[in-house]
C-alpha cells in the first residue's frame, strides 16, 4: 500500500472575518454552510451567501477528551445562524451555554469556527 503525504481538503465551513461563506438554493431557499453548486434538497442552483455573525445555540457540551489539536476541556456547540444553516462551532470562553443563548462568530482557531456568547 503506497503512503501519501497529501493533506486532504479542509471540509469545515469557510469563515471570512465573522461570517460563514456558504450558499443558498435559488429554488427552495435552503441555506447551507458550504458553497454548493446544487442544492442537496432539490438540486436547485445555489448562490453564495454570507451567514452570521449572530446565531442561537441549539445545544452545547464541554468535551473532556483530547481531539486532534484540541486539549480538554473545550466546548462545542450546534448553532443555528440567523436565517442560516446549523453549524458546529467552538465556544469561547470554554464552558457550556444553555440552548437559546445568543452567540456571535468571532473568527476561527486553526480552522474551527469560534463563537462568543
Amino acid at each position: 500500500m503506497p503512503s501519501v503525504t497529501v493533506e486532504p481538503a479542509d471540509p469545515r465551513p469557510l469563515v471570512d472575518g465573522d461570517v460563514v461563506v456558504g450558499s443558498r438554493c435559488t429554488g427552495c431557499t435552503r441555506p447551507d454552510a458550504w458553497q454548493r453548486e446544487r442544492c442537496p434538497a432539490c438540486l436547485g442552483v445555489c448562490v453564495s451567501e454570507r451567514f452570521g455573525p449572530g446565531g442561537i445555540v441549539w445545544s452545547s457540551a464541554d468535551v473532556h477528551l483530547a481531539v486532534g489539536h484540541r486539549e480538554p476541556p473545550f466546548t462545542l456547540a450546534q448553532v443555528d445562524l440567523d436565517d442560516g444553516p446549523r453549524v458546529l462551532v467552538t465556544v469561547r470562553p470554554t464552558g457550556e451555554v444553555p440552548p437559546g443563548t445568543r452567540v456571535r462568530i468571532v473568527g476561527t482557531d486553526d480552522g474551527d469556527v469560534v463563537v462568543e456568547s
Binding site: 486532504p8 471540509p11 477528551l65
Partner: peptide
Amino acid sequence: PIVPEPTDPEGRSGLALPALYALQANRYLA
C-alpha cells in the same frame, strides 16, 4: 476512543462521538 473522521466537517471540527451524544443529552435535559 474512536478518532473522528478528519474528512468529515464535524469530525474535523472535533466532534468525537461522545460529544455528539452529549449535545443531544444537554438539549434533551433542557
